[in-house]
Amino acid sequence: MRLAAVNIDGVLLTDTFSPVIHRFITRRGAEYSADVEREIFSQPQHLAAKALGVAAGLDWSVPELLEAFFEERDAYLSDHPLRVQDGAVELLRRLRAQGLQVICYGGLRKEHFDRFLGEWEDLFDGPRYVCTDEIRPGIREISADVFGLGFDQVLFIDDVARVAEAARELDVAFIGHASDFEHGFQGVLMREAGVRHLVTSPAEIDEELLCLVDAEAAAGAVWIR
């Protein structure tokens, strides 16, 4: 492998989307389920907003839904400040020590990366951060278009099953990072998608695991099939 692509929210930074989406839906008396997460998570914002409206029973426009959601998120962040995950910076250094180039990606604009990870931008390569809102999940674009690599040369680390499913279709190496959100379903959904390696902390992605995934990628055995 030559490149590690690491998701920003939920892997390098704490998960502030799952709890807000859950609260947005349940406080309006609607049900939160695995199917709801499937429809919303790691979708372009306009599609996620539509799915959020359906789940919450709201007949609002996309701009109205996005405005309400981000207001809800701001309120959540006032009590639960966003922070860098324990062990995240050490993971980046470990990836580089393995000889990998490193890129960060996510659905928010680069200002989000600059604000929370700009202090460590020297640990990233190329454009350092790719906003995938319009190209989600972005596996093909990051691998081939940005770095010119084959799918067997890239490792993705993400917390969402939709990304895992796309990685499996392309036979891309993948490590799942399950959120600790108590009402979340992504860990279960990633297992259902065939994710072989699922961690709960960046610290669990150690040198031994990286070497194992590298060997599995070379053998075409990354996924449980």
Rank of each mutant, 00 (worst) to 15 (best):
L155F: 01
F116G: 01
V89C: 02
F181I: 10
G126Q: 04
A173N: 10
G176A: 09
V89H: 06
A167L: 08
F181E: 05
G150Y: 06
L189T: 02
A97N: 02
D180C: 10
L91H: 06
L149Q: 04
L117N: 02
L91A: 03
R196N: 12
D114S: 08
L189C: 09
F185K: 00
Q98R: 13
S61I: 01
S78N: 09
H80C: 08
Q85P: 13
S143N: 08
L95D: 03
G57C: 09
C104S: 13
R96P: 01
L77A: 04
G176P: 11
L92G: 06
G126R: 06
D180M: 14
Y129T: 10
V172N: 07
G194P: 02
F147H: 10
F116L: 14
C104H: 06
K110Y: 07
E72S: 12
R73H: 05
D79H: 13
A97H: 10
P127G: 11
I157K: 04
A164L: 01
V160D: 04
F124P: 09
S143W: 00
L58F: 07
H112E: 13
A166Q: 08
L189A: 02
H183C: 11
L189W: 00
P63A: 11
D171K: 14
D145C: 12
D125W: 00
F113E: 06
L95T: 06
D59I: 10
A173K: 04
A88I: 13
T132V: 15
A88R: 02
D122Y: 13
L170H: 02
G150N: 09
L108R: 07
V195R: 00
D145G: 15
L82P: 09
H177N: 03
D133P: 00
E165N: 01
V62C: 15
Q101P: 03
M190R: 02
R94I: 06
L65Y: 05
H80N: 06
E134K: 15
A55L: 04
A161G: 00
L123Q: 03
A178C: 00
A68E: 15
R73T: 00
V163D: 03
V62A: 11
C131Y: 08
D180E: 14
R191C: 10
G184C: 08
Y76M: 11
P63I: 14
A88C: 10
D86P: 15
Q85A: 11
S78I: 12
R94P: 01
D171N: 15
L189K: 04
L82E: 07
A144Q: 15
V188A: 15
L65D: 14
V195C: 12
G99R: 13
L82H: 00
A166F: 06
V89K: 07
G118K: 08
E64N: 11
S78R: 15
R136E: 13
D59G: 03
G150R: 13
S78L: 09
L66H: 10
F156D: 10
A68S: 15
V89F: 13
L92V: 07
L77I: 11
R128Q: 02
A97T: 07
C131L: 04
L92N: 06
L95Q: 11
T200Q: 12
D180W: 12
L92P: 03
G138R: 10
D158I: 04
D152Q: 11
W120I: 03
